[in-house]
Design a binder for these strands. Structure first.
Lengths: 128, 128
DNA sequence: ATAACATTTGGTTGTTTTACCAAATGAGAA
DNA sequence: TTCTCATTTGGTAAAACAACCAAATGTTAT
């Protein structure tokens, strides 16, 4: 890793780190649906206003969101909308982890696809 | 944010946080090109072996990579290859930030595309 | 068995992050 | 102007993180 590569990694890691907190990730996902004022975001977060404000500052510094003051309120929106595109892959990792846990419990006696069949049968049971 | 949504956010944020460190992000990008043993990764990282090992542990427990011991060496590989797909969006954020900085310096006197023309002219100058 | 190698674990220390409270700011309303 | 509302800033304490060193582990080679 040379010096240039290193600063590129630092820059990219900084963005990922900004998204790497449950509250901030939730905020980013909310903003994917359009701009929101701080008060709207705060309605659904159980934390001090100052905490919320600081999380938004982190996202802003990372370049993920931008803010705009209009009247008494401050509105935040995604600066680059593609943030939403990250989620499918993150969810795939989650899914893969869940699958390994299942296989652990199953003691590796059945294959992935066999498990899928079993799971979907269970689902049908429930829905009956 | 209800309890379920909250734990989902925690799970996802955990993955992003694992990638949110320059060394770990670099490791993940290396592994996108195929499995590597710890020693191969270590060759290009200026840090103690124990530090490198701990970073790999973080990636492993986030479900990003899996390890396999073969002989004396331990090989790591991406558990879910889509990690690479995250990068274009991260780079777009970087790009957007760079662009705002340029516009700040330019005092907003020129448009994005005008700047692009100027920049590519500068590039041609250099290459002459 | 012993040595040599690759990697992990445990322990320590300094740094960063997070959350809260209290106080400050800035804008619009009275 | 003065009051209120929405948000940010400053300060502080607790928790989490990152890097290093030293020692432990598990594997082949001698």
């Amino acid at each position: 890793m040379n010096a240039n590569e290193k600063s590129l990694m630092e820059a990219k890691a900084n963005i990922l780190k900004a998204l790497g907190h449950p509250t901030r990730l939730w905020m980013a996902e909310q903003l994917a649906g359009g701009e929101k004022c701080v008060c709207e975001l705060a309605e659904n977060i159980d934390a001090d206003f100052s905490t919320i404000s600081k999380h938004l500052t982190v996202l802003k510094q990372a370049g993920v969101v931008i803010d705009e003051k209009r009247g008494k309120q401050v509105f935040y929106r995604l600066k680059v909308p593609c943030i939403l595109n990250l989620m499918p892959c993150i969810e795939a990792v989650l899914q893969a982890t869940a699958q390994s846990h299942i296989e652990l419990v199953m003691d590796g006696r059945r294959s992935f696809s066999e498990n899928m069949v079993i799971m979907s049968n269970n689902q049908m049971e429930k829905n009956r």
